[in-house]
Design a protein around this nucleic acid. Structure first.
Length: 410
DNA sequence: CCCACTCTATCGGCCACAGACGCGG
DNA sequence: GCCCGCGTCTGTGGCCGATAGAGTG
């Protein structure tokens, strides 16, 4: 991935699609993502203008440049002057927005080239925008994953979002990359008045960069150990420890590398008062927190205060880019756990839950355990190749198993 | 609680070979 | 830059042995 569009290789790349792991020019972005309903769901964001390879999650107002988490860290953490730069979160979008809509989303980008609408089907220009730092508290579940919601965000909303998501880096921000949970904590404090406990959405920018965050997050890793998810989603949890054991959600989700020594995702809370207790890390740790806090805040608090969690594939060696992939369950990232948010007044309707379960099933059905066959021709040959004790044999030689006859020759 | 043993589940290697791939002319 | 020939690499499925983990006495 580089400066030029990964698709056409001619135009300057402008947006990053995490689902495709590609930097695209606006024209190709529109072409590629108007192909079908699934591709239209891909969430895109600006490409980092510094490294040109990572999705931008923040816009430096002073420097007028969009930056990925790494470049933001490299550019702002070092110097004292730069660390005070005001930055805005960069919104993601899906669908097929027009140039005008894009300039609405990214008002700070002045050179959005015009893109033709010819490739988009009627109605496809409706876009959904995901803010990186705020989630729509209490909103319908579907709106958060961008699948069912084709919502044209009004300009006022965007302005509000942008306004609320501007922050100035403090002296502690060097922890942004290494310990983003602390930033979460800061964010949580900053938003403590607006984001209640029922809204786990006060995510730090970058942790929820786009849908790639949960789209790329391999749901299969969660699927592995959840066979009775219906029961999981349906039952009321009286004792989370009964359900999850001492490992918390890690044991449920089969997260392999949960160790107490890793610091990649330390759970922390934004407020001391348990009534305002806020999961400061939008991942499984916070899920554990939320579940626990729903039933037994004290227990949760006590346990979570000491729980340092990490995810498979995300080790201490992970760089910033890796950390951007610090995946959590999509349901967590949607801001609303399928078992319902902790506060009673915004309890999730059963239809939403069932739809969430349905979509979860759908995703599981389409993704889980399906071995991806890259070369159908090779598979076809292997399917008819004769074997001896499972091993392929040369053509014409004696065999003990013929896949065609489905029986042994002797 | 610890140890030894059994049972079950999981994982990786092996095989032939067509096609993909890279490289030099 | 394009084409061709050659050598190397890759991936495919079923079986089996090694290993890990759970269960039992």
């Amino acid at each position: 991935m580089g400066y030029l569009c990964d698709f056409c290789g001619e135009q300057r790349s402008m947006v990053y699609c995490r689902s495709d792991a590609a930097c695209l020019c606006l024209s190709c972005d529109r072409n590629v993502h108007s192909a079908n309903a699934l591709s239209r769901r891909h969430s895109r964001t600006l490409v980092c203008e510094r490294c040109n390879s990572q999705p931008a999650f923040v816009r430096c107002v002073e420097e007028k440049v969009s930056l990925c988490q790494n470049c933001d860290w490299l550019g702002h953490a070092g110097s004292t002057s730069a660390s005070t730069h005001k930055r805005q979160t960069v919104n993601c979008y899906s669908g097929c927005p027009s140039a005008a809509e894009l300039s609405t989303i990214w008002s700070f980008v002045s050179d959005i080239p015009a893109v033709t609408d010819s490739t988009c089907e009627k109605g496809l220009s409706s876009i959904s925008i995901r803010d990186n730092s705020l989630t729509n508290c209490g909103g319908p579940l579907q709106s958060n994953d961008g699948q069912d919601a084709s919502v044209l965000v009004e300009e006022n909303d965007i302005k509000n979002v942008d306004k609320s998501s501007v922050w100035t880096e403090s002296s502690s921000l060097p922890q942004l990359n290494t310990k983003p949970q602390n930033v979460d904590q800061q964010m949580g404090l900053a938003n403590s008045t607006s984001s209640k406990m029922c809204c786990p959405g006060a995510k730090a920018p970058g942790q929820h960069e786009d849908d790639g965050f949960y789209e790329d997050f391999n749901m299969d890793e969660i699927d592995l150990d959840i066979e009775n998810y219906e029961e999981l989603f349906g039952v009321a949890f009286n004792d989370p420890q009964q359900l999850f054991g001492n490992d918390g959600i890690g044991s449920l989700f089969g997260v392999k590398n949960m160790s107490g020594s890793d610091l990649n995702c330390q759970s922390a809370y934004a407020a001391q008062d348990s009534s305002m207790m806020q999961p400061a890390c939008s991942n499984a740790a916070s899920a554990d927190s939320m579940m626990s806090s729903k039933t037994d805040p004290n227990l949760c608090f006590g346990r979570q205060a000491h729980s340092n969690l990490s995810f498979s594939g995300l080790t201490g060696e992970s760089n910033g880019g890796d950390f951007q992939d610090c995946g959590a369950s999509s349901m967590l990232l949607m801001g609303e756990p399928p078992w319902g948010p902790p506060c009673a007044e915004s309890s999730l309707p059963s239809t939403s839950r069932s739809s969430a379960v349905m979509r979860y099933k759908e995703k599981k059905k389409t993704r889980k355990f399906e071995k991806k066959v890259r070369y159908a021709a090779r598979k076809a040959r292997a399917d008819v190749r004769k074997r001896v004790k499972g091993r392929f044999v040369k053509a014409g030689e004696a065999y003990d198993y013929d896949p065609l006859s489905k029986r042994r020759s002797f």
